[in-house]
Computed example of a mutant assay.
Amino acid sequence: MEDLKGAPPGCAPFQATSAAGWDYRFSVKEPTPVTAGDKAVSYLITNLSAPEGKGNVESVIRTGGTLSSFLLAQGTGEPKSVPEAVARKQHERLLNARS
């Protein structure tokens, strides 16, 4: 988690190529982070060719040894991480499942 958390500030734009033949450049930035779970990180990944420059916000929340991942399209306005209430509820479910 520490490596993932420390990656967005220093992440330069990168290129990704698929087996299907598409080739795109992406950027990574930090939106407002999520605070739920034992540890959490969020990042905005944007295809530099995307219409209107919109991206997807990925949030990863650790509960013990389990990672929960949430992917949200940016939509309108500022990019937002998974809502805190949703992240907390998932964290609580995982804690209760261990009991």
Rank of each mutant, 00 (worst) to 15 (best):
M1S: 13
D3F: 12
D3S: 14
D3Q: 14
L4R: 15
L4K: 12
G6E: 13
A7T: 05
A7S: 08
P8C: 11
P8Y: 11
C11N: 10
A12V: 07
P13S: 07
P13K: 04
F14K: 02
F14D: 11
S18Q: 05
A19E: 12
A20N: 07
G21C: 01
G21Y: 06
G21R: 03
W22R: 09
W22E: 09
D23F: 00
Y24M: 04
R25L: 02
F26L: 07
F26R: 02
F26W: 04
F26P: 00
S27N: 01
V28R: 05
V28L: 11
V28W: 07
V28M: 12
K29M: 09
E30G: 05
E30M: 09
P31S: 01
P31Q: 01
P33I: 04
V34I: 11
T35G: 07
A36P: 09
A36L: 10
G37L: 07
A40P: 06
A40E: 01
V41N: 14
V41G: 15
S42F: 06
L44S: 00
I45G: 00
I45K: 02
N47V: 03
N47L: 03
S49N: 08
S49T: 03
A50H: 05
E52P: 00
K54Q: 08
K54R: 13
K54M: 05
G55I: 00
N56Y: 12
E58H: 13
E58R: 12
E58N: 15
V60C: 05
V60I: 15
I61F: 03
R62E: 13
R62T: 10
T63H: 04
G65S: 13
G65R: 12
G65A: 13
T66G: 01
L67Q: 04
F70I: 09
L71I: 14
L71N: 14
L71Q: 12
L72C: 13
L72K: 13
A73G: 14
A73F: 15
Q74W: 02
G77F: 01
E78N: 09
E78L: 13
E78P: 00
P79L: 03
S81K: 06
P83R: 05
P83K: 04
E84M: 09
E84R: 06
A85D: 12
R88F: 05
R88C: 04
H91D: 15
E92G: 00
E92F: 01
R93M: 14
R93L: 15
R93V: 07
R93H: 12
N96Y: 07
R98S: 14
R98T: 15
S99L: 10
